[in-house]
Design a binder for these strands. Structure first.
Lengths: 246, 246
DNA sequence: AGAGTCAACTCGACAGTACGAGTTAGCGAC
DNA sequence: GTCGCTAACTCGTACTGTCGAGTTGACTCT
């Protein structure tokens, strides 16, 4: 769809209906638990065909905002659950964070020999050079999150990942802009463990403290691991929250 | 849709197309990265209308199996990511597990005064009676997961939650069958912590071991918390895995 | 050889129609 | 009052058809 300078972009009709209904839910016209007008009524209200209304209702259902029951109608769900796309995921948060302005300090960055776990994830020999970027996040001057990002050497070439300066855009935007790289999905592993020596130093933890550890592999569209993100969260300071439909 | 004894259930046409295409992806007819036949070709192949084909392709796209590009066609994605609905979530796993046959031992069950955190989640006073069910899971005779489920007293009435016998169906099925209760969504919190005294006993852990703790609130369709599930996973034995699209 | 045009192909959106299946309320019979 | 039937309402599936917009390759002209 091309838009000339003099024209206003009009969203598809079904999207406009989604927006209108969401607005009415938000302003209390259709409160939680209430029934929406039938499809036939919405056809009249919006002056569109039934398949267009159905499509809008299907979108609302997919987003967990309404339930549709055959023969009965559509109902506003009580509490829109935190949409699964909106819930915080540690790896995604790291990729989308802008270091400048977020209390982030780059502790070190540059080529390093790949430790065994990272080498395995990239499919390179242990000790092969990869680029490492270690960033410490603080809140109210208290260190709270240690992020170590690893990238294959060829991928990091030409980017600022290996420079010990805070990035001015998110990692995702930076790699998209400089390398045309698009991320497809993430696989994260969460564990409870004791801190590593450098974590003990950075956070001032005891050797037996409990740490929430997150190791995330970032895949591009061809199924290749393009980044490994290793995050350490001291257990005394962090809970991760996750919401999902049943 | 009613099915008489002499008739075979036929899935909707669009669902049959989804299944057929998924089978061809799995058997290598359409390998990762390859282009699917055009909509028009699929219309001829399956002898259906174009909106029916489009609907099947939209389902495949929603499931992250294909990408559709306007003007170009549909492409099989490289690695179907673990579907977000298929990834393991601790709370969901507990609700869907059948205790009998799964190495589950019921350690205790019955009415207990609500501890502060549980009381807060149910909106009852601390110390009010609630039903508690504590189950230990073992693998190869080694304890590996301790699950404590809490239910409001009225909800547990008439169910087997307060009986120290393994359930013969999953908790979800049991409450659906006995109470007509339907779960809507779960909000989980994950943390790294040290073990509680009873966890030290059950797992034979040291006082400073790292434990992955999961506390899940289960909501029904009206937004009420109907169950609290508290899971302790010794850090030496467990990682949780989570996959999501970007 | 390069640029522009056009036709054929592709998907996105929309309208209208029809039939089947599930639900509910009203009415009549007992 | 209760039960059964029916009509009206509801959503699920599927079809036919049209138009618009994006992509690509072949052909023509300079």
């Amino acid at each position: 769809m091309s838009v000339s300078d003099d024209e206003q972009y009009a969203p598809p009709k079904y999207a406009q209906i989604v927006t209108a209904i969401r607005r009415k839910i938000a302003d209390g016209t259709y409160p939680p638990g209430s029934q929406l007008p039938s499809e036939t009524a919405l056809v009249r209200e919006f002056a569109v065909s039934r398949p267009t209304v159905v499509r809008a209702l299907q979108v609302l259902q997919l987003r967990g905002i309404i339930d549709r029951e055959h023969g009965k109608g559509s109902y506003v769900k009580a509490i829109p659950p935190v949409g699964e796309e909106e819930s915080s995921r540690t790896g995604r948060a790291v990729l989308d964070r802008v270091e400048i302005g977020e209390g982030a300090a780059v502790l070190e960055a540059g080529a390093r020999p790949a430790p065994a776990n990272v080498a395995g994830m990239f499919g390179v020999p242990e000790g092969a050079p990869v680029v490492m970027r270690r960033v410490l996040l603080s809140e109210a001057d208290e260190p709270c999150e240690l992020v170590t990002a690893w990238a294959p050497i060829e991928l990091a070439e030409g980017t600022d990942l290996g420079r010990a300066q805070p990035l001015t855009v998110s990692i995702r935007q930076h790699l998209q802009g400089v390398k045309g790289l698009r991320f497809d999905h993430v696989v994260e592993r969460l564990s409870a463990r004791h801190p590593l020596p450098h974590e003990i130093d950075v956070f001032g933890l005891s050797k037996t403290a409990a740490v929430l550890g997150v190791v995330a592999r970032v895949f591009d569209g061809s199924g290749r691991v393009v980044l490994v993100i290793d995050v350490a969260l001291p257990g005394t300071m962090h809970e991760l929250e996750d919401a999902y439909s049943l």
